[in-house]
Each structure stands twice: as structure tokens, then as C-alpha cells.
């Protein structure tokens, strides 16, 4: 799925790195616990989360993710956006809740890690 399709499915607003929205992603994960993302995620390129702090972006960088979606309209501050820009990570916000946002992407064809 293209990042641009994610934006449409979630009716999301892109906050940075819009130049990368044509990149293709194959799986995603949703979590507010970065410990879990660091321990269990494998090859998911998209992170959906309700947690808003710079560690979300750093976690995404460590996991080679290319898109972070903040749910429930939580707007990240400038520091977070700057960090994402440094690594070319597309950041968007949606008014959907985490469960709903994940469900919309899943039913749209973007799955979790099925090789596990």
C-alpha cells in the first residue's frame, strides 16, 4: 500500500516529508508501548500510536520505519517533526482512534507481520 493511500483511508493530515508519500509499505503495527515496538516488531514500516513524544520517532528510526501516524488528533510538537524530517519519516495525524485506524488499514489490505 502506498503511504498516500493510508492518508486517504484515515482521512489524515500530513505534517512532514510529504515527498515520500509514494513509497510502498507492506505491513504496519499499532502500539502505545515503545518497549513492545522495539521488542516485537519486525519489518513493519508504519507505526500507529496514541503516544506523542520524541521517543516515538527515535523508536521508528531504530526500526527502519518510514511512516508514523498519531491517532486521536494528537498533534506532535515542532521538536518531534524536526526529528522525523532528519530521517525522512512521513508523519501524519488522524482523528480516528487507534483501534479504528488499525482496522481501516487492515481491511484496506495493509496487514501485520504474517511471517511470524
Amino acid at each position: 500500500m502506498k503511504i498516500s493511500t493510508i492518508k486517504e483511508l484515515l482521512n489524515a493530515q500530513i505534517l512532514c516529508c510529504e515527498e515520500n508519500i509514494n513509497r510502498e509499505v507492506f505491513s504496519a503495527c499499532g502500539s502505545d508501548l515503545m518497549s513492545d515496538v522495539l521488542a516485537y516488531v519486525k519489518d513493519q514500516a508504519v507505526l500507529l500510536t496514541g503516544l506523542v513524544n520524541p521517543q516515538v520517532i527515535r523508536t521508528a528510526v531504530m526500526m527502519d520505519m518510514i511512516c508514523v501516524i498519531f491517532v486521536r488528533s494528537k498533534k506532535p510538537g515542532d521538536e518531534i517533526i524536526e526529528l522525523a524530517k532528519e530521517s525522512g519519516i512521513v508523519v501524519m495525524i488522524t482523528d480516528k482512534r487507534l483501534y479504528e485506524a488499525c482496522g481501516l488499514l487492515y481491511s484496506g489490505g495493509l496487514r501485520g507481520n504474517e511471517n511470524k
Binding site: L33, M34, S35, D36, L38, A39, T49, L51, N53, Q55
Partner: peptide
């Protein structure tokens, strides 16, 4: 509340 402290750090470092 910041998304850490779940007791996964050291085991994940080892892994």
C-alpha cells in the same frame, strides 16, 4: 506513561 519501562529492555538487548 512515556511508552517505556515494560521490563523488555535488557532481554531485548540480549536478543
Amino acid at each position: 506513561s512515556l511508552g517505556f519501562g515494560a521490563g523488555m529492555g535488557l532481554p531485548n538487548m540480549k536478543r
